[in-house]
Design a protein around this nucleic acid. Structure first.
Lengths: 211, 211
DNA sequence: GACTGATGTAGAACGTGTTACAAGTCTAGA
DNA sequence: TCTAGACTTGTAACACGTTCTACATCAGTC
């Protein structure tokens, strides 16, 4: 973490496979291997265990290649988080969320994801801390995560996979719920809240906001 | 940041002056110099500029001494943040917050602090990112910051310096407002929101929560 | 097939957070 | 005053994120 620069990073021309799509099949494959290795290492030992040399070795790419794909450890971890979140978005697109009220549906979605995260505390610690530590240069990946979260909550709010129009107020509420959820996760990751507190704090926020 | 361990840190007996009070006069003086140096360096160059060797040099203590007082860079920065926040608490204890409604008073307090932070973007970047990156071992310092924030908002809510009883619901609201504020600050620090967005997002949250 | 530029590899090197250590200094109590 | 122990200093060493360099490989073009 010696120099996670605050300045925007220079792109040395078209980076080969920073985007999930594009690049040759071999490149998409390498990207996948790198993210898989990241998740594996993070799940085993958390943020500190995701060492760039170890990721490169496990993904069977050279260190330089790893850096060509992901310009920093933070980019790497946030990209991994983005990939995980994409799964929720995909799922929420397929079928309607169970629950009779917006409150129930939102809690259902967030609790499902929360519990999944809590099953892998080390992984969560790595991903959440990277997300929180990210600086300006990671704006793109961060935004991707934010969009996924917003989409999922928005769908849960309306109960249907199609987005529908989201009012200004709804958008504000969704943003606040996201903030509370992330804060709670951070608190949980760092041992300041237990699993139950997390669900409770989100529940209270949702209740206060949707009344 | 090579090894911000997730494990709780061993205390090698009574640390000399980790607490703001206690220790000899010379020790309190050293602690003050260290935190002053931290703030100065952070204000000039942000998180990356707060280099432990530089802090030690500017504070005129040995590197080992710096680490004896603050066991990591994160502890150092979060302690600096805690000291800054204490000032707000002290101020809020002296006089009533201006404003006719809880909404106005809370916005007054938070906006005042927000603008103060925005005047020193580098410093804010350093402090906020350290706060967000903090792990379990920093629980004490983090809690100190959280308590200050809660106290200030709570006083603003009621309009008087005396705490009064805070209901369960009020406490929940205060926590949510804190979460939103911190999230907004992070977004601002990393360039994902501008100054106006920060105030607006807090305003919306306060309005939704206090209605 | 040979050339060329982009991509990948292996490994050294650098910077900064952190730890370790030997020696000096200060303080409390005999 | 003297001594034991805690504290401080100065400096070296180590770990890991990041950068750099020299060379190999591969895809597309002639």
């Amino acid at each position: 973490m010696t120099s996670v620069s605050t300045e925007p990073r220079e792109t040395d021309g078209p980076t080969p496979a920073t985007a999930p799509t594009g690049g040759s099949a071999a490149q998409r494959e390498r990207r996948r291997r790198i993210l898989d290795a990241t998740i594996t290492l993070a799940a085993e030992g958390g943020f500190d265990a995701v060492q760039m040399r170890a990721v490169a070795e496990q993904a069977e790419v050279a260190l330089g290649t790893l850096y060509r794909y992901f310009p920093s450890k933070i980019h790497l971890l946030v990209s991994a988080l983005a990939r995980e979140f994409t799964k929720d978005v995909d799922r929420s697109a397929i079928r309607a969320t169970p629950g009779d009220t917006a409150h129930e549906r939102i809690m259902y979605v967030l609790n499902r994801r929360t519990r999944a995260l809590q099953k892998q505390p080390k992984l969560t610690e790595a991903l959440v801390r990277a997300f929180m530590f990210a600086d300006q240069s990671v704006t793109g990946e961060i935004h991707e995560v934010g969009t996924s979260l917003t989409t999922v909550i928005s769908r849960a709010m309306h109960g249907t996979p199609d987005h529908g129009e989201v009012t200004e107020e709804e958008a504000a509420i969704i943003r606040i719920i996201s903030d509370v959820w992330l804060s709670a996760l951070i608190s949980w990751v760092t041992g300041r809240m237990d699993a139950e507190d997390v669900e409770k704090s989100i529940d209270v926020a949702v209740r206060l906001l949707l009344r």
